[in-house]
Amino acid sequence: MSQLYRTAALDGIIQHPLDSMTLIFQKSSGVTHMVADPVPAILEVMAEDSLTASDVAQRLSASYDLEDNTDVADIVLARLAELCTLGLVEQV
């Protein structure tokens, strides 16, 4: 769990919320991603910092009202892996 993650250049993406989903346009690839919660929140709390999955989970819990008994860290880890595949987040 000590792997560090960092968002790939935030000025390289444009976020655009649409009702239930959020669009993320990635300038480097030209790809439009359509993502659901908690992905936009994850990117927001990560800001420009290098963080572990549990750091991200802690920040999420601090900023958002999360349901009890949810294993936030596991969910975050799974989303981070997906974001890495898309090139929106990098392992550092």
């Binding site: 649409l18 009702d19 030209g30 439009t32 359509m34």
Partner: peptide, 22 residues
């Protein structure tokens, strides 16, 4: 129709959405 659905269907209905980039 929800905006997400509209957006997706319009990207499918556009021949040059990807080519125009940002």
């Amino acid at each position: 129709m929800g905006k997400s659905e509209i957006f997706v269907r319009l990207t499918q209905a556009s021949t040059n959405y990807v080519a125009l980039g940002e």
